[in-house]
Write a protein that binds this DNA or RNA. Structure first.
Lengths: 221, 221
DNA sequence: TTTATATCGATTATAGCATATCGATTAGAT
DNA sequence: ATCTAATCGATATGCTATAATCGATATAAA
């Protein structure tokens, strides 16, 4: 159901459910149970049920949820049904990769234009315009853009963020590996590869250490 | 200090500290206090202190931490001091962007080669070889690669993961927007843009709703 | 030498989240 | 019509992470 406040952890799990539901084959049953979802995604069934209860109320015993309406409920909750316009700053490799990613449509995200300090082209491969960064805040204001995607080097990120805020932006998707200082009403979502790498790296280290210990043990025997 | 078990949340914050410390100007003071770090990054000072205590023991009252040795401690803890080899599968735009990212050296990550279902070139711009995907598991075995980076479309991801595991990989960095089924000793770190987008989207929706309500109120006055 | 202050580290409290349990509901079989 | 089994939703419990508090320590100044 709607209207409740939702925790960030739940929020982050919802896209997972959505992706799984949307990728189910056409000839799959019309209904799906929270139990089945949980098993498929390797999670606890109670957690799945609780999460789904936050966004939908279509669950029926013995039947489960109607797949179609569950998808709609999640999408509506996540706001994927109405599009949000965004700008992207930093037309380097990563920036271009994001500009070219078709999947954003599904999430209701529409990148209007790219900005760069030294624009190498007038339009991207996809036909989106590339402007000089000096025009950033004005563009945001006139087009009422609410979201900025930062793919510039770390050194330039804060400066870009400041200009975005001048332009009236409310949310920033930050791919630069640096901390951004912003007013409290602006949301910064950090897509920081370094954090992921840290998790992986530490896991691997532990793994290697473990293997070494096993080998040493075997050597002693 | 070392040897303790560390929680994932702490782990994810460490790269933030590290990046900030490394970006400090040469002429900055030799020492830095947990308090100063906390203020700079907009966090609670107690949390920062606790996190640092997990990886270092160089904190001294009134002085703080020695910047250089703190950096070393964090890097050592994260395993950035010895390199880990990796392979990348999916030489599309995102894959190429990652291959070209110089910053990975700093994290001790070395991408040996790329694999693709239909290799478009023999070598990447950076001179790394691009092989057909059929050679994946053999390559991993012979080079004792422990980490795989998946940048293929969602449909192909599970299949690639399976082959990686056959090749003896221990950790997977998954950029495909899908759930991967793997044995419990394999770590999957999902770099899922969809989750970030969800957080942003819901925030923006709330923001828009709020603004609308304010306007309606003003209209009534 | 003494005192004041900045900072650390340990302990305790609070809150949020995940997990387990239980009763309620309903489709389908008998 | 009744019973069974699957599934849901709600409540209760336990755990982990964050936040708050307090004493200890070391430097610098008087």
């Amino acid at each position: 159901m709607e209207g409740k406040r939702i925790s960030k952890s739940v929020l982050k799990r919802l896209p997972g459910y959505l992706a799984y539901l949307k990728n189910m084959p056409e000839d799959a049953p019309v209904n799906i149970s929270a139990t089945a979802l949980a098993n498929a995604l390797g999670m606890g069934e109670v957690q799945v049920r609780k999460d789904l209860a936050m966004v939908s109320d279509g669950g029926r015993p013995k039947i489960g949820y109607q797949r179609e309406s569950l998808i709609e409920d999640i999408e509506q909750f996540l706001g994927y049904d109405n599009t949000t316009d965004a700008v992207l700053i930093g037309a380097g490799k990563l920036g271009q990769a994001l500009m070219g990613y078709k999947g954003f449509d599904e999430y209701g995200l529409n990148i209007l234009a790219a900005f760069d300090e030294k624009p190498q082209m007038e339009k991207t491969e996809e036909g989106k315009p590339v402007y000089h960064i000096s025009k950033l805040s004005a563009f945001c204001r006139t087009h009422k853009v609410l979201m900025g995607i930062i793919t510039v080097p770390a050194e330039a990120a804060q400066q870009v963020a400041d200009q975005l805020i001048v332009g009236g932006i409310k949310a920033i998707w930050n791919f630069a590996p640096t901390h951004l200082d912003v007013p409290s009403n602006i949301l910064v979502q950090n897509e920081n590869m370094a954090t992921s790498l840290a998790v992986l790296s530490v896991h691997l280290q532990a793994q290697i250490k473990e293997e070494k210990e096993i080998k040493e043990k075997e050597g002693k025997l």
